[in-house]
């Protein structure tokens, strides 16, 4: 048993190493600014999707307010930089902390709710946040927008300066954070904390009978998942250079949830695939013009219909079939 566990652990680390290699190679393969832009959007969406999956897929808390935490991270960091002159990285930390604190505040109120009720409460939070961003014009500029937001400042290394106005470098930065977030969440879900969250998701009453403080752990899950979304928001502002409240409208929450569902809820790798697919597919389909969104919608419907467990489940099934076929072949080859 422990051998199987350590083999699975090794495979996971090999997978993470492979992902790091893919991240390193991607900007070298995609050299134009359009595809490098799409790569950065993919990395941002991966952060948003895995953050949401931690709350929805592992802790079982249906959060429809991820767009709000994304927006809070973006606005807090940008306002600190542009109004108070704070450097990017302290502002980044503040953006992440502000999102996490907002997530904790929401979860403190929503901790008594479950299922649909929690979904509506979190949706309400997203609506309130959007309205605040839109109407508190003296602070956020509201619909007038904030323009000319600079990307993260260059990082100086001995004899080398990494400039984030270069899209390849910016991709390495955002994707690096996405990978770091993935590793941290992966460690969490495979630790006793992950088992605790799964226990709460499966049966809160039984979990409580084992001495698990469900409220505390739900607050924790919200804080972690929304902190990751806040980080994505901080990068978004510097990447797009423009901040308007419409970028964090509630429909964005549904897009992020779709990434989690299409990828496979409750598996960290699934939302990564979901985020990449749902970011890249509409871009690939640009060539077919007006039919683009019809084909996109159809593709999503087919995925949900024929792969109810998402891409992760489909990949797992395909792998199992391959392994069964190969073991049958090996057995048949024996004398």
């Amino acid at each position: 048993m422990s051998d199987a566990y350590s083999a699975a652990g090794r495979a996971r680390w090999w997978g993470i190493l492979a992902a790091a290699c893919v991240i390193a190679v991607l900007p070298l393969v995609f050299r134009d600014s359009y595809w490098r832009t799409n790569l950065i959007v993919c990395a941002l969406n991966v952060m948003l999707a895995i953050g949401l999956d931690f709350v929805v897929g592992y802790a079982g808390q249906l959060n429809l307010g991820q767009s709000a935490f994304y927006g809070i991270g973006a606005y807090v960091s940008t306002l600190l930089i542009m109004r108070l002159g704070l450097p990017f990285w302290p502002a980044f930390v503040c953006g992440v902390v502000a999102s996490a604190l907002s997530g904790m505040v929401l979860s403190l109120f929503a901790v008594r709710l479950r299922g649909h009720y929690l979904a509506i409460a979190s949706l309400g939070f997203a609506v309130i946040t959007y309205q605040v961003l839109l109407n508190w014009i003296s602070l956020t500029q509201g619909p007038l927008g904030i323009y000319g937001i600079a990307p993260p400042p260059p990082v100086g290394l001995p004899g080398w300066q990494i400039d984030f106005t270069d899209l390849a470098n910016l991709f390495y930065l955002v994707a690096g954070f996405a990978l770091l977030s993935y590793v941290l969440l992966d460690q969490l879900v495979r630790s006793p904390i992950g088992e605790t969250l799964t226990a709460i998701r499966e049966d809160e009453v039984s979990a409580a009978s084992l001495g698990i403080n469900a409220r505390l752990w739900k607050v924790f899950a919200f804080a972690v998942g929304t902190a990751v979304a806040g980080g994505a928001g901080c990068f978004y502002a510097g990447f797009v250079g423009t901040l308007v409240p419409d970028a964090f409208f509630i429909t964005e929450s549904f897009n992020i949830l779709a990434m989690v569902i299409v990828g496979g809820m409750g598996t960290l790798s699934g939302p990564v695939f979901g985020a990449i697919l749902l970011t890249v597919l509409p871009e690939f389909l640009r060539g077919i013009g007006d039919l683009r969104l019809i084909v996109y919608g159809l593709a999503l419907t087919l995925v949900v219909l024929f792969m109810p467990g998402g891409i992760a489940q489909a990949l797992r099934l395909a792998r199992d079939r391959l392994m069964r076929a190969s073991s049958r072949q090996t057995a048949g080859a024996k004398p």
Partner: peptide, 22 residues
């Protein structure tokens, strides 16, 4: 060549870059 810029900053940026590069 038409590109859908969707009246929104990020999709418009993506569409503009696609036009420029391709």
């Amino acid at each position: 060549q038409y590109e859908d810029s969707a009246c929104s900053p990020l999709p418009a940026t993506q569409a503009a870059k696609r036009l420029i590069d391709q």
